[in-house]
Structures are given as C-alpha cells and as structure tokens.
C-alpha cells in the first residue's frame, strides 16, 4: 500500500485510487489453486454472493447529521431490517457493512480507518451524504477530509444532505444487488494511508514533530493540495 502511496504524485487521483488488485476481494485461495473457474465453484460463488447480499450486519456507527437519518432508517417507519440489514452490531468484528454517516475530519480519519480495518472481510461501505462524497458543504474547511474515499474504499455513495431514509434504503438495496451480482468496489488504494511515523519522508513538518511522536506510532499524513 505504502509503495503505491509514493506514486500518487504522478498519477491522477482516480488512477491512484483504482490501483492494482481491484475486484479481487472475493478470490479465494481455492480458486487460485484451480486456476480457472470450475462449474461447482461458480455455483458456490453464486450461492455465497446471494448469502452476502441477503443478510448484512451493520456497524453501529454514527458520525454527524446523517446518523440521525440513519437511525430513522432503522426505526419504525422505514425499518431497514426488512431487507435483512437492520441488525446494528456495536463491535466492528461482527459487522459486514459500515455506513459512513457524516463528515470526516482529520482527527477522526485515522480512527475510522482503524475501525474499517477491524472489520472482517468481506466488508462493504456505504457512504451516506455529500460529506462522504466530497466533504459536502464543509469541503473548504481546513480540517475536513474531502470524501470518505480518501480514507477507505466506498462501495455505494448515497447523495443528499442528509439523504432521506428512503434514499439510504435504496443505497443499501443497491449494495445488496451489487454484492449478489458479485460486483465489488473497484477502489482499493487510498491517498491517505496510515503509516508508521518513522517511515515518513523527512520534510519540515516531520522534523518538527519528530521529538513529539514515537517512530512506531501510526500516523496519517494529509497532503491537502493533493485532495480533489
């Protein structure tokens, strides 16, 4: 990952995000061993895709305004559980889908990345609201990450500020459809990746912080100018 990071300067952001290894999240060692895709595995894959698309545990995860509409989506009138996606788990270890409901700021991005990393594969992300697309109304803020995709790959974007519960349901249903069809998010490389502090290039900022931060600490470095 970090080797890809270094090349972001020369690649366009989109190319950098696409990277290599896109779409290989479902490829099992078993299939690699076979080399091709035998019939039985295709059927099995189909079944597994159906399974993953029919039932999802959501991560109980609230960030900002959108989380209020997200709760409404779970609650009485909209009832996301009809789609088999209404069980919020508070521990990321047991969740399949992370709905990112709100603005991500610099202080929170590393934490969100950590939570995402704690989820077991296969995992999916629904970006809820404009803030997870581009930073939304707060895009010009000094502290705001310009979209969730800067930090973690997002499968479905639901636009709106905030999206109505119906829109979120549509987004989740769309995600289920995509998963059931065996499609996954092409995004595997992110501009902001957590790195060990000691590995960062020694520029002015890193030197300034050198005695404050332990070499082994994980850090996220924001190059605001590279953001879209």
């Amino acid at each position: 990952m970090s080797s890809n990071d270094k090349t972001t300067d020369t690649l366009s952001t989109q190319d950098a995000r696409m990277g290599q290894g896109a779409d290989d999240r479902f490829n099992s060692p078993l299939r690699e061993a076979f080399g091709s895709t035998p019939f039985i595995l295709t059927k099995f894959d189909k079944f597994m895709n159906w399974v993953r698309g029919s039932s999802m545990f959501m991560l109980q995860f609230g960030i900002a305004c959108c989380s209020i509409e997200m709760i409404h989506t779970y609650a009485i009138k909209h009832d996301l559980d009809r789609f088999g996606a209404g069980v919020p788990r508070s521990s990321p270890r047991q969740a399949d889908v992370m709905i990112v409901p709100g603005t991500i700021v610099s202080k929170f991005a590393p934490r969100m990345k950590r939570v995402y990393d704690q989820m077991p594969e296969p995992k999916f992300v629904v970006g809820m609201g404009s803030c997870t697309i581009s930073g939304g109304p707060f895009q010009e803020g000094y502290n705001v990450i310009k979209g969730a995709e800067e930090v973690i790959p997002v499968d479905i974007h639901v636009p709106g500020c905030p999206p109505r519960p119906e829109a979120l349901i549509y987004g989740v249903a769309k995600l289920q459809e995509r998963v059931a069809n065996g499609e996954s998010a092409p995004v595997t490389v992110k501009p902001y990746e957590m790195e060990q502090f000691g590995d960062l290039e020694q520029d002015e900022i890193v030197q300034k912080l050198a005695d404050q931060i332990d070499e082994d600490d994980l850090v996220m470095r924001y190059n605001w100018t590279d953001s879209p």
Binding site: R114, D203, I205, D214, D217, V219, M220, T225
Partner: peptide
C-alpha cells in the same frame, strides 16, 4: 496556510 500538509497520529 490551509494547504500545508498535516500529520495526525493514532496514538
């Protein structure tokens, strides 16, 4: 300067 890079830890 809003464009200067920042480093944020996960300490």
């Amino acid at each position: 300067d809003q464009t200067q890079p920042q480093v944020v830890t996960l300490r």
